[in-house]
């Protein structure tokens, strides 16, 4: 091994997040051999990819929108756990894409980066009490903080009980952990497990069906599966029809023009 190779190997072994690295490389279209440093910037040094840009106008990266980039989650690993969890909540099936295919993880990431994630319009004064009503949001943590806590506890529970990361488990095993979270059997600090789970479930559904402008419901596929036309000006001409109407889908982009 050349010195450089050795150094690269060392760097790779040192990566706390092997999976992160692997996925990062895959997603960005970089070749593994190009790694020289620990940080993202380092990855680009001496990379064949750089050459591609200068020599060709073709973008050979897998098709990804600029918005499919993390805005809120800092750790790769947290995001992988999120992806795995939402896909179990809304899986890909014969009807069409699941949460990942619909862009739900990025939808959630963006929502948590905005006012909803920081509970801008909510009452956040203490103290927090034990309450009987399970659906009530009783914590001073923001939704963003609740997600980080909840996601990490999903992974910690996975490591504890299965000796593997959450996203490396089989689907059924992931379901067991999600059910334990939903039932309040996994202890979280500062917030109840069901509060996190309900939020996760709700935001998964939102990401599947909200207008694509928010980063989910990719290509209006959520609406297609639901046979919902999305945003139409109105249905005055059709309201009395007894036959079910399949209507071309439109999004706010089309509607606002």
């Amino acid at each position: 091994m050349s010195d450089q190779k050795k150094q690269e190997k060392k760097n790779e072994d040192n990566q706390p997040e092997q999976e992160s690295r692997r996925r990062f490389l895959k997603n960005s279209g970089l070749v593994a051999g190009g790694i020289v440093g620990g940080g993202l910037l380092g990855s680009f040094i001496g990379n064949p990819f750089t050459k591609d840009i200068t020599t060709s106008n073709k973008d050979e990266r897998p098709k990804k929108e600029f918005t499919e980039t993390r805005m809120f989650f800092t750790r790769f690993e947290d995001f992988f756990v999120l992806e795995a969890a939402v896909e179990r909540i809304y899986p890909e099936d014969g009807n069409g894409p699941g949460a990942i295919g619909l862009g739900v993880p990025y939808f959630i990431d963006k929502q948590l980066a905005g006012p909803y994630g920081s509970n801008k319009f909510d009452y956040m004064k203490g103290p927090v009490q034990e309450v009987k009503v399970a659906s009530s949001y009783q914590t001073l943590m923001s939704r963003g903080e609740v997600f980080i806590e909840g996601i990490r506890k999903l992974n910690a529970e996975s490591l504890r009980s299965q000796d593997a990361k959450f996203y490396d488990l089989e689907g059924e095993q992931q379901d067991e952990i999600l059910k334990a979270m939903e039932a309040g059997e996994i202890g979280l600090r500062g917030v109840k497990g069901p509060t996190f789970f309900n939020l996760l479930r709700q935001m998964t559904i939102e990401g599947a069906y909200a207008d694509p402008l928010y980063g989910g419901n990719k290509n209006m596929m959520g609406w297609k599966m639901k046979e919902h036309p999305g945003i139409r000006p109105g249905y005055s001409d059709l309201i009395e029809e007894e036959k079910f109407q399949i209507i071309e889908r439109m999004s706010l982009k089309d509607y606002q023009g």
């Binding site: 509970n119 009452y123 956040m124 009490q129 009530s136």
Partner: peptide, 10 residues
């Protein structure tokens, strides 16, 4: 003891 309804959904 009463508790506050914190979120807009509540």
């Amino acid at each position: 003891e009463a508790f506050p309804l914190r979120t807009q959904s509540e």
